[in-house]
Design a protein around this nucleic acid. Structure first.
Lengths: 134, 134
DNA sequence: GTCACCACTAACCTTTTGTATACTACTAAT
DNA sequence: ATTAGTAGTATACAAAAGGTTAGTGGTGAC
Protein backbone atom coordinates (compact mmCIF):
# COMPACT_ATOMS: atom_id res chain seq x y z
CA UNK A 1 0.00 0.00 0.00
CA UNK A 2 1.56 3.25 -0.99
CA UNK A 3 1.40 6.44 1.00
CA UNK A 4 2.16 9.33 -1.31
CA UNK A 5 -0.54 11.84 -2.02
CA UNK A 6 -3.17 9.96 -0.11
CA UNK A 7 -4.30 13.08 1.71
CA UNK A 8 -4.34 16.00 -0.69
CA UNK A 9 -0.66 16.99 -0.26
CA UNK A 10 1.10 17.96 2.95
CA UNK A 11 0.33 21.54 3.80
CA UNK A 12 3.27 23.53 2.55
CA UNK A 13 2.71 26.30 5.09
CA UNK A 14 3.17 24.31 8.28
CA UNK A 15 6.13 22.44 6.84
CA UNK A 16 7.82 25.70 6.07
CA UNK A 17 7.28 26.94 9.60
CA UNK A 18 9.16 24.06 11.17
CA UNK A 19 11.76 23.87 8.48
CA UNK A 20 12.40 27.59 8.86
CA UNK A 21 12.65 27.36 12.64
CA UNK A 22 15.09 24.52 12.27
CA UNK A 23 16.96 26.52 9.68
CA UNK A 24 17.30 29.39 12.14
CA UNK A 25 18.52 27.05 14.83
CA UNK A 26 21.06 25.37 12.58
CA UNK A 27 22.20 28.74 11.29
CA UNK A 28 23.04 29.90 14.80
CA UNK A 29 24.36 26.72 16.37
CA UNK A 30 25.03 24.42 13.45
CA UNK A 31 28.44 23.42 12.27
CA UNK A 32 31.04 21.12 13.64
CA UNK A 33 32.16 23.06 16.67
CA UNK A 34 29.63 25.56 18.05
CA UNK A 35 27.78 23.18 20.34
CA UNK A 36 30.97 21.49 21.42
CA UNK A 37 32.43 24.82 22.47
CA UNK A 38 29.28 25.72 24.36
CA UNK A 39 29.25 22.35 26.07
CA UNK A 40 32.91 22.63 27.00
CA UNK A 41 32.24 26.06 28.47
CA UNK A 42 29.29 24.73 30.41
CA UNK A 43 31.53 22.01 31.82
CA UNK A 44 33.70 24.65 33.37
CA UNK A 45 36.47 25.28 30.90
CA UNK A 46 36.88 28.98 30.60
CA UNK A 47 40.29 29.82 29.22
CA UNK A 48 41.46 29.55 25.66
CA UNK A 49 44.01 26.82 26.09
CA UNK A 50 41.78 24.85 28.45
CA UNK A 51 39.10 24.91 25.81
CA UNK A 52 41.48 23.84 23.10
CA UNK A 53 42.66 20.92 25.21
CA UNK A 54 39.19 19.76 26.16
CA UNK A 55 37.73 19.96 22.66
CA UNK A 56 39.84 17.36 21.00
CA UNK A 57 40.81 18.11 17.44
CA UNK A 58 40.10 21.81 17.35
CA UNK A 59 42.87 24.12 16.21
CA UNK A 60 43.62 27.51 17.71
CA UNK A 61 42.46 29.24 14.58
CA UNK A 62 39.12 27.51 14.48
CA UNK A 63 38.53 27.91 18.20
CA UNK A 64 39.30 31.58 17.93
CA UNK A 65 36.81 31.99 15.08
CA UNK A 66 34.12 30.00 16.85
CA UNK A 67 34.49 32.05 20.02
CA UNK A 68 34.15 35.26 18.04
CA UNK A 69 30.99 34.06 16.34
CA UNK A 70 29.53 32.80 19.59
CA UNK A 71 30.25 36.18 21.14
CA UNK A 72 28.59 38.01 18.26
CA UNK A 73 25.52 35.83 18.63
CA UNK A 74 25.25 36.49 22.33
CA UNK A 75 26.12 33.03 23.64
CA UNK A 76 29.48 33.89 25.12
CA UNK A 77 31.10 36.77 27.00
CA UNK A 78 34.82 37.44 26.78
CA UNK A 79 36.12 38.74 30.07
CA UNK A 80 39.56 40.17 30.72
CA UNK A 81 40.89 40.02 34.25
CA UNK A 82 43.99 41.91 35.26
CA UNK A 83 44.28 41.19 38.97
CA UNK A 84 47.70 39.66 39.35
CA UNK A 85 48.21 39.20 35.64
CA UNK A 86 46.16 39.30 32.48
CA UNK A 87 43.77 36.40 32.21
CA UNK A 88 41.05 36.02 29.64
CA UNK A 89 38.02 33.95 30.33
CA UNK A 90 35.08 32.96 28.23
CA UNK A 91 31.77 32.65 29.97
CA UNK A 92 28.38 31.54 28.80
CA UNK A 93 25.65 34.15 28.89
CA UNK A 94 22.17 33.62 30.29
CA UNK A 95 20.94 33.38 26.76
CA UNK A 96 23.05 30.33 26.15
CA UNK A 97 21.11 28.61 28.94
CA UNK A 98 18.15 28.54 26.58
CA UNK A 99 20.09 25.90 24.69
CA UNK A 100 20.01 23.46 27.60
CA UNK A 101 17.10 21.40 26.23
CA UNK A 102 18.84 21.16 22.88
CA UNK A 103 22.12 20.13 24.43
CA UNK A 104 20.63 17.56 26.74
CA UNK A 105 18.46 15.99 24.08
CA UNK A 106 21.50 15.73 21.84
CA UNK A 107 23.64 14.24 24.57
CA UNK A 108 20.96 11.73 25.53
CA UNK A 109 20.45 10.74 21.97
CA UNK A 110 24.19 10.46 21.40
CA UNK A 111 24.55 8.11 24.36
CA UNK A 112 21.66 5.99 23.19
CA UNK A 113 22.96 5.93 19.64
CA UNK A 114 26.43 4.92 20.74
CA UNK A 115 24.99 2.03 22.72
CA UNK A 116 22.87 0.96 19.76
CA UNK A 117 25.73 1.06 17.27
CA UNK A 118 27.87 -0.97 19.63
CA UNK A 119 25.27 -3.69 20.05
CA UNK A 120 24.50 -3.74 16.32
CA UNK A 121 28.18 -4.23 15.64
CA UNK A 122 28.26 -7.21 17.98
CA UNK A 123 25.08 -8.70 16.54
CA UNK A 124 25.97 -8.60 12.86
CA UNK A 125 29.73 -8.58 12.83
CA UNK A 126 31.21 -8.01 9.42
CA UNK A 127 28.13 -7.21 7.36
CA UNK A 128 28.26 -4.79 4.45
CA UNK A 129 27.10 -1.23 5.07
CA UNK A 130 26.76 -0.24 8.68
CA UNK A 131 26.45 2.87 10.75
CA UNK A 132 29.59 4.01 12.40
CA UNK A 133 30.71 6.04 15.34
CA UNK A 134 33.16 8.85 15.19
CA UNK B 1 36.15 37.97 41.07
CA UNK B 2 37.56 35.37 38.78
CA UNK B 3 36.29 31.89 38.39
CA UNK B 4 39.01 29.76 36.88
CA UNK B 5 40.51 26.99 38.92
CA UNK B 6 38.46 27.79 42.00
CA UNK B 7 37.43 24.18 42.42
CA UNK B 8 40.37 21.92 41.69
CA UNK B 9 39.83 21.61 37.90
CA UNK B 10 36.76 20.37 36.07
CA UNK B 11 36.79 16.60 36.05
CA UNK B 12 38.09 15.62 32.67
CA UNK B 13 36.26 12.31 32.72
CA UNK B 14 32.69 13.55 32.89
CA UNK B 15 33.42 16.30 30.38
CA UNK B 16 34.67 13.72 27.94
CA UNK B 17 31.56 11.62 28.38
CA UNK B 18 29.23 14.38 27.33
CA UNK B 19 31.52 15.73 24.68
CA UNK B 20 31.87 12.25 23.23
CA UNK B 21 28.12 11.66 23.27
CA UNK B 22 27.58 14.94 21.54
CA UNK B 23 30.31 14.06 19.10
CA UNK B 24 28.51 10.84 18.26
CA UNK B 25 25.25 12.69 17.80
CA UNK B 26 26.76 15.35 15.57
CA UNK B 27 28.60 12.71 13.59
CA UNK B 28 25.35 10.95 12.73
CA UNK B 29 22.99 13.87 12.34
CA UNK B 30 25.26 16.87 12.04
CA UNK B 31 25.85 18.81 8.89
CA UNK B 32 23.72 21.22 6.98
CA UNK B 33 21.03 18.91 5.69
CA UNK B 34 20.51 15.68 7.66
CA UNK B 35 17.99 17.02 10.14
CA UNK B 36 16.21 19.04 7.49
CA UNK B 37 15.74 15.95 5.39
CA UNK B 38 14.44 14.00 8.35
CA UNK B 39 12.05 16.79 9.24
CA UNK B 40 10.80 17.07 5.68
CA UNK B 41 10.19 13.34 5.64
CA UNK B 42 8.32 13.54 8.92
CA UNK B 43 6.14 16.27 7.43
CA UNK B 44 4.97 13.85 4.81
CA UNK B 45 7.20 14.40 1.82
CA UNK B 46 8.26 11.04 0.56
CA UNK B 47 9.41 11.27 -3.02
CA UNK B 48 12.69 12.58 -4.28
CA UNK B 49 11.43 15.61 -6.12
CA UNK B 50 8.94 16.47 -3.38
CA UNK B 51 11.79 16.45 -0.93
CA UNK B 52 13.96 18.59 -3.13
CA UNK B 53 11.16 21.12 -3.49
CA UNK B 54 10.34 21.28 0.18
CA UNK B 55 13.93 21.61 1.38
CA UNK B 56 14.77 24.91 -0.16
CA UNK B 57 18.30 25.22 -1.44
CA UNK B 58 19.25 21.57 -1.61
CA UNK B 59 20.56 20.21 -4.87
CA UNK B 60 19.73 16.81 -6.31
CA UNK B 61 23.28 15.68 -5.80
CA UNK B 62 23.36 16.61 -2.15
CA UNK B 63 19.88 15.25 -1.46
CA UNK B 64 20.85 11.98 -3.07
CA UNK B 65 23.96 11.73 -0.93
CA UNK B 66 22.12 12.63 2.25
CA UNK B 67 19.44 10.03 1.59
CA UNK B 68 22.08 7.38 1.07
CA UNK B 69 23.82 8.25 4.29
CA UNK B 70 20.56 8.38 6.20
CA UNK B 71 19.68 4.97 4.81
CA UNK B 72 23.06 3.57 5.82
CA UNK B 73 22.58 4.92 9.32
CA UNK B 74 19.14 3.38 9.65
CA UNK B 75 17.04 6.53 9.68
CA UNK B 76 15.41 6.07 6.30
CA UNK B 77 14.04 3.23 4.18
CA UNK B 78 13.99 3.44 0.41
CA UNK B 79 10.91 1.72 -0.97
CA UNK B 80 10.22 0.93 -4.59
CA UNK B 81 6.60 0.54 -5.65
CA UNK B 82 5.69 -0.82 -9.05
CA UNK B 83 1.91 -0.97 -9.03
CA UNK B 84 0.83 1.17 -11.93
CA UNK B 85 4.32 2.52 -12.53
CA UNK B 86 7.62 2.71 -10.72
CA UNK B 87 7.52 5.05 -7.76
CA UNK B 88 10.21 5.44 -5.18
CA UNK B 89 9.44 6.61 -1.70
CA UNK B 90 11.59 7.41 1.26
CA UNK B 91 10.20 6.62 4.64
CA UNK B 92 11.45 7.23 8.13
CA UNK B 93 12.24 4.18 10.19
CA UNK B 94 11.18 3.61 13.77
CA UNK B 95 14.71 4.40 14.81
CA UNK B 96 14.38 7.89 13.43
CA UNK B 97 11.56 8.46 15.89
CA UNK B 98 14.17 8.44 18.63
CA UNK B 99 15.24 11.79 17.23
CA UNK B 100 11.91 13.43 18.06
CA UNK B 101 13.14 15.10 21.26
CA UNK B 102 16.14 16.46 19.41
CA UNK B 103 14.02 17.77 16.56
CA UNK B 104 11.41 19.37 18.75
CA UNK B 105 13.93 21.02 21.05
CA UNK B 106 15.69 22.42 18.02
CA UNK B 107 12.47 23.67 16.47
CA UNK B 108 11.32 25.26 19.72
CA UNK B 109 14.64 26.91 20.20
CA UNK B 110 14.68 28.11 16.62
CA UNK B 111 11.28 29.73 17.00
CA UNK B 112 12.30 31.40 20.23
CA UNK B 113 15.57 32.56 18.73
CA UNK B 114 13.89 34.02 15.69
CA UNK B 115 11.53 36.01 17.89
CA UNK B 116 14.44 37.23 20.01
CA UNK B 117 16.52 38.35 17.05
CA UNK B 118 13.54 40.19 15.60
CA UNK B 119 12.88 42.11 18.82
CA UNK B 120 16.58 42.84 19.33
CA UNK B 121 16.70 44.27 15.84
CA UNK B 122 13.80 46.58 16.64
CA UNK B 123 15.25 47.64 19.99
CA UNK B 124 18.75 48.58 18.90
CA UNK B 125 18.40 49.38 15.24
CA UNK B 126 21.68 49.90 13.50
CA UNK B 127 24.14 48.94 16.19
CA UNK B 128 27.51 47.37 15.39
CA UNK B 129 27.75 43.59 15.68
CA UNK B 130 24.45 41.75 15.91
CA UNK B 131 23.16 38.26 15.53
CA UNK B 132 21.44 37.51 12.31
CA UNK B 133 18.87 35.13 10.95
CA UNK B 134 19.30 33.05 7.88
C1' DG C 1 6.49 12.70 -31.75
C1' DT C 2 7.32 15.98 -28.52
C1' DC C 3 7.27 17.51 -24.13
C1' DA C 4 7.43 17.18 -19.31
C1' DC C 5 8.07 14.69 -15.16
C1' DC C 6 10.64 11.27 -12.27
C1' DA C 7 14.87 9.70 -10.00
C1' DC C 8 18.71 10.18 -10.14
C1' DT C 9 24.28 10.50 -11.70
C1' DA C 10 28.65 12.66 -13.59
C1' DA C 11 31.78 16.18 -14.22
C1' DC C 12 33.42 20.20 -12.87
C1' DC C 13 33.99 24.24 -10.03
C1' DT C 14 33.68 27.21 -5.87
C1' DT C 15 33.23 27.86 -1.12
C1' DT C 16 33.81 26.52 3.32
C1' DT C 17 36.23 24.42 6.68
C1' DG C 18 40.12 22.72 8.78
C1' DT C 19 45.32 21.74 9.36
C1' DA C 20 50.11 22.82 10.06
C1' DT C 21 53.50 25.70 11.08
C1' DA C 22 55.21 29.60 12.54
C1' DC C 23 55.17 33.73 15.01
C1' DT C 24 53.96 37.67 18.36
C1' DA C 25 54.03 39.82 22.90
C1' DC C 26 53.52 39.00 27.42
C1' DT C 27 54.25 36.50 32.14
C1' DA C 28 56.22 33.19 35.31
C1' DA C 29 59.22 29.88 36.87
C1' DT C 30 63.99 27.71 37.26
C1' DA D 1 69.01 33.43 30.59
C1' DT D 2 66.27 29.85 29.12
C1' DT D 3 62.20 27.51 29.08
C1' DA D 4 57.31 27.07 29.30
C1' DG D 5 52.79 28.80 29.34
C1' DT D 6 48.96 32.22 27.77
C1' DA D 7 46.16 34.06 24.07
C1' DG D 8 46.01 34.34 20.30
C1' DT D 9 47.18 35.92 14.69
C1' DA D 10 49.25 35.04 9.95
C1' DT D 11 50.10 32.40 6.18
C1' DA D 12 49.76 28.69 3.22
C1' DC D 13 47.83 24.66 1.98
C1' DA D 14 44.58 20.50 1.83
C1' DA D 15 40.27 18.36 2.33
C1' DA D 16 35.41 18.32 2.61
C1' DA D 17 31.19 20.09 1.41
C1' DG D 18 28.25 22.05 -1.61
C1' DG D 19 26.59 24.20 -6.12
C1' DT D 20 25.91 24.26 -11.32
C1' DT D 21 25.05 22.35 -15.37
C1' DA D 22 24.08 18.86 -18.02
C1' DG D 23 22.50 14.38 -19.14
C1' DT D 24 20.58 9.48 -18.51
C1' DG D 25 16.72 6.20 -19.24
C1' DG D 26 12.30 5.50 -18.18
C1' DT D 27 6.92 6.78 -17.99
C1' DG D 28 2.85 9.37 -19.17
C1' DA D 29 0.12 13.00 -21.31
C1' DC D 30 -1.32 15.66 -25.55
Amino acid sequence: MRKHQEDSKPTVVECNGKLAAMGDALYAIGGKWKLRVILALSEGNMRFNDLQRSISGISARVLSNELKELEMNGFVKRIVYTDPTVIIEYELTDYSDTLDPVLSSLINWGEMHRAKIRSDARAEAGVTARAVLQ
